[in-house]
């Protein structure tokens, strides 16, 4: 299990406007493409140098492809990264201010302290 790689997906998609839209509209395709092209990039390194060992397990891949932020919370993905990206993708579908954020909280309401560990 790689909380780091989940976070890396959320981080790299969130900072790219085109990827935000692509992930919103075609999540399975985007996750598969990202895992085969970006997952092993060392972000602050020269192009051409890369890691060789980073992959999602099936549960992680499915959580991302299913836009399943409840599962991502359970898996220990960084909650700030998840929240920020999911606001960017889905807040627009709600009429009332903060309605998406409140629904997000409600869907996590079965979690109590201590929350899943987010240390990487």
């Amino acid at each position: 299990m790689s909380k780091y790689l989940l976070n890396k997906f959320l981080f790299t998609v969130d900072r790219d406007p085109d990827l935000v839209e692509r992930y919103r509209s075609a999540p399975h395709e985007t996750v598969a493409w990202w895992e085969s092209t970006i997952a092993n990039e060392i972000l602050n390194c020269h192009g051409g140098e890369a890691s060789t060992w980073l992959t999602f397990d099936d549960v992680e891949r499915e959580a991302l492809a299913g836009h399943d932020y409840v599962k991502l919370f359970e898996l220990g993905a960084h909650p700030f990264l998840t929240l920020t990206l999911f606001i960017a993708m889905f807040e627009r579908d709600y009429e009332e201010p903060l309605a998406f954020q409140k629904e997000y909280a409600a869907r996590l309401s079965h979690f109590s302290l201590p929350y899943p560990d987010i240390a990487t």
Binding site: F73, L83, Q101, Y104, A105, S109, H110, F111
Partner: peptide, 9 residues
């Protein structure tokens, strides 16, 4: 709280 059940209360 951000990204958790107690957010935006």
């Amino acid at each position: 709280e951000l990204g958790g059940p107690r957010q935006f209360g």
